[in-house]
Design a protein around this nucleic acid. Structure first.
Length: 459
RNA sequence: GGCGCCAUCGUCUAGUCUGGUCCAGGACGCAGGGUUUUCAUCCCUGUAACACGGGUUCGAAUCCCGUUGGCGCUACCA
């Protein structure tokens, strides 16, 4: 049988990192087994579902390179099917109408809480076939629900504890747990791979499946992605959507690689993986059971790795959006990109790191002093360097020439003593590419002007 | 409250099924050192963990039981 998996996000918010990771694992499992990976948008919640969120999910998946097979399925389009099965269950009296009001249900739950028994609704209306309004519930058949999870092993639930589950608000408004069962069955999903937070939905879905006579898919519940405080990663933790990470300047291959390592580990110590390699190596048996904390430091280190591997033109493309206001030409962009390639965690940092190339640097004069140098020494060292530089012809003001002329002086006076004040004079920063590199990019006129300005700053 | 899941360095994890090769390995982080032109990159070194208590066994991170802790779910949301 052909393996089929799916990702079934609901378009009620930006594409969440946890969803993306679930999508990745479902995709990897399907592709590893030469199967299909499908995308189904769960938009049955009309109030909260939005087109912009659907677009965000689709774009996020595409950006990451997790490409689904076939057409996108929208759950709302499947309403007639859902109704058909609802009518079937009703006709077979496996489901019934429940007329209890929310207030009554709330009171019931309150009483159950007092009695310290599980909250559930064991509805008396199931014995009254005359009722034909209210929500549609599944008659609880009782007994044990036993299923095997590919990651957790055998799980046993007592179906009594679930009560009579609500299937739909009415014939045209199916609820999540019901729609999922219908759609998974009709799409012939063989493996339901989803987050751990759905573990307790599984027995509910199995009950519905059995009432309908559907085959049971295999289940694999993935450990959750946790925030630093070990709670489920959610909006309140900030930075939880794929789009946000994209905007922060992460590369899709880095985010993908990082997500794969959250809850999964290969048999070797390899940590850097392309999507292709992940497909080769992926194995559900090597998925972790415990939740995994999302560690931004680790993500940064992986992103750094991928940034270093970018060819200059690609890197330039990524930093370009941050310099729109400067109207840089392609050559300037590539030079800038090259200068900072080893210094970037994220593309969004480029503006802070490289802004001085295009704007006059701002800094406190004290920063010019190297270690124990006095202001006087700094001033004289800068003047010495300036003299050397001013003698250089404008058309050969490049790294080689500057180095050849300046290094002997720096070696004589002290490298730090000469080069540190130059770095600060040119960049205004304590961390930057070398003064030589900066000067080549800045050109003679600007370099000289900045050094003069620095000298003037010293009292 | 109920039900369920989980438990190795600060974090991601290897090792657990098939007990000894593990006084627990890798990576991120952190600390120190080296290269370099300061910082960073790069290289090297170091740091730090089997939640606790019982059992089984010649031997347990690995098997069993219990405790504790964490998390998830508990909607006429998905």
């Amino acid at each position: 049988m052909k393996i089929k998996t799916r990702i079934a996000p609901s378009p009620t918010g930006l594409f969440h990192i946890g969803n993306a990771r679930t999508a990745l694992f479902s995709y990897l499992f399907a592709k590893k087994n030469h199967g299909e990976f499908l995308l189904r948008i769960e938009d049955t919640d009309i109030e909260r579902s939005k087109k912009e969120y659907e677009d965000d999910i689709i774009n996020g998946l595409r950006w990451l390179g997790i490409i689904w097979d076939g057409e996108i399925i929208r759950q709302r389009d499947r309403a007639p099917k859902h109704r058909e099965y609802l009518e079937k269950l009703l006709a077979e009296s496996k489901a019934f109408y429940c007329r209890h009001t929310p207030a009554e249900l709330a009171q019931e739950q309150k009483n159950q809480e007092l009695e310290k028994i599980p909250f559930r609704h064991d509805c008396q209306h199931k014995y009254d076939p005359e009722i034909s309004d209210g929500v549609i519930r599944l008659k609880n058949p009782g007994g044990k629900i036993v299923f095997k999870d590919l990651i957790r092993g055998e799980l046993i639930f007592e179906s009594e504890l679930l009560g009579d589950l609500v299937l739909a608000k009415d014939l045209n408004t199916p609820l999540y747990n019901f729609a999922v069962v219908i759609d998974d069955a009709e799409m012939e999903i063989t493996h339901v791979i989803r987050g751990d937070d759905h573990l307790s939905n599984t027995p509910k879905q199995i009950l519905t499946q059995e009432a309908l006579g559907f085959n049971r898919p295999e289940y694999a519940h993935l450990p959750l992605i946790l925030a630093a405080d070990r709670s489920k990663l959610s909006k309140r933790h900030g930075g939880t959507s794929v789009t946000e990470y994209k905007n922060m300047g992460y590369l899709p291959q880095a985010l993908l690689n990082f997500m794969a390592l959250l809850g999964w580990h290969p048999a070797t110590d390899q940590e850097i993986f392309s999507l292709e390699e992940l497909i080769q190596e992926f194995d559900l048996n090597r998925v972790q059971k415990a939740g995994a904390v999302f560690d931004k430091e680790k993500l940064d280190s992986i992103n750094r790795h991928y940034i270093k591997q970018l060819v200059p033109a690609e890197l330039a493309k990524h930093i370009a959006p941050h310099f729109i206001a400067y109207n840089l030409n392609p050559e300037q962009l590539i030079k800038t990109a090259h200068l900072f390639q080893d210094r970037l965690n994220r593309f969004s940092e480029i503006k802070d790191l490289a802004g001085f190339l295009f704007d006059a640097p701002k800094y406190q004069p004290e920063l010019l002093n190297w270690k124990n140098s006095s202001a006087g020494e700094t001033k004289s060292n800068l003047e010495t360097a300036l003299m050397v530089l001013e003698k250089l012809p404008i058309d050969s003001f490049n790294i080689d020439t500057i180095t050849t002329e300046l290094m002997p002086v720096a070696n004589k006076i002290g490298r730090g003593e000469v080069l540190w004040p130059l770095r600060v004079a040119l960049s205004g920063l304590d961390k930057s590419p070398s003064p030589f590199e900066i000067m080549e990019v800045l050109g003679k006129a600007e370099s000289v002007a900045r050094i003069k300005k620095a000298i003037d700053k010293i009292k």
